[in-house]
Simulated assay, not measured.
Amino acid sequence: MVDNKFKKGLLIASLSLNVLFILFFIGKRFYYSHWSLFHHVKLDRWSEYLKSKPDTGEIIFLGTSITEGFPVKKEFNNPKVKNMGFAGSISENGIQVIKRLIYRRPQKVFLEFGVNDFKYHISADTVKSNLITMIDIIKAKSPNTKIYVQSVFPTNIDSLNNKIVNYNKEAESICLTKEATFINLYPDFLKGNKIDSDLTIDGTHLSTTGYFNWRRLIDKYVN
């Protein structure tokens, strides 16, 4: 009798863990597919930007928190450079924001997506498909906009870097096919097989020196 109760308890515990596991991934997908619902403060920045009059020659940076932390106006000394990166963004969010801003017909768009996708175990095929969609939307709605796809930066996690290296190669091929400019930043942030500790604050996000390095590498594309 005790043995049967113990087995029943183990079964209930196992089923409960499986249900929680499934709910976790459902919740995570809901969070990232309805990303804007959870970022009200940042939506104020979006609202202010979208209500503003489009600048001739506008240059827009889109991406994750890595982009959000990039003081682009200061670094490039150009008021037409706009930072619309948002923490937590995945490539699917890139599609959403491009649909909202492409009517402004910017001169240039710089994309930085992928690291969060891989952290959240989103497949590389999905990220590649989303990249293709982003490029296609820009070309269809604003054909004169120049598209710059920046590689995913390295991290301090080997397993993550393996995925990033493979994706960056595929992204470069996509850009070649789609006539977009691919900027491979990955090698210039490496020390050994991981991100240079002088260029990061936590193994993913960039330090002041990291942002200086980024600006140095892409200045010719921005200005």
Rank of each mutant, 00 (worst) to 15 (best):
L131E: 01
K163H: 10
F212C: 11
T56R: 09
N166R: 13
N193K: 15
K82M: 12
S14K: 12
L62V: 04
S129W: 00
H205P: 08
N144T: 04
E75M: 15
S151N: 08
L15T: 04
Y211P: 10
F113T: 00
R104G: 07
L160Q: 08
T177R: 13
K7I: 07
I147F: 04
I66F: 02
H39T: 09
N18P: 02
S142C: 06
K119E: 04
T200Q: 06
D188H: 13
N193W: 03
L131H: 06
V97A: 02
I218A: 09
H121T: 03
K220L: 12
G94T: 00
T209K: 14
R216G: 06
F61S: 09
L185C: 09
K53V: 13
I12L: 13
V127R: 00
R29W: 03
N116G: 02
K146P: 03
D202V: 08
L160W: 03
D55G: 09
Q107K: 15
G57P: 07
T64V: 05
L37N: 11
I132M: 13
F61R: 08
I102T: 04
I174M: 10
L11Y: 02
I98T: 01
E68I: 05
S123K: 08
I132F: 09
E170C: 11
S129N: 06
E172R: 15
L176A: 13
F21A: 11
K178N: 09
I195Y: 06
I218D: 01
V97L: 12
S33I: 03
L43N: 14
N184G: 10
Y120V: 04
L10T: 02
S91V: 00
S159L: 10
D219E: 12
L10N: 07
Y120M: 09
E170N: 09
V165E: 05
N162Y: 01
A171P: 03
D44N: 10
I218N: 06
I147Q: 08
N144Y: 05
F21L: 13
K178Y: 06
F24M: 15
I164R: 00
S173W: 01
T133V: 14
Y103Q: 14
L101E: 03
K169R: 15
V72S: 02
V19S: 07
P71V: 07
F189P: 12
H39S: 11
T177C: 03
N223F: 07
S14I: 07
E75T: 11
L111G: 01
N156T: 06
L17F: 06
G69N: 14
D125A: 14
K139C: 06
S36G: 11
L17W: 01
I138C: 06
F30W: 10
G94V: 00
Q96W: 09
L185G: 12
F189L: 15
K146V: 10
G63W: 02
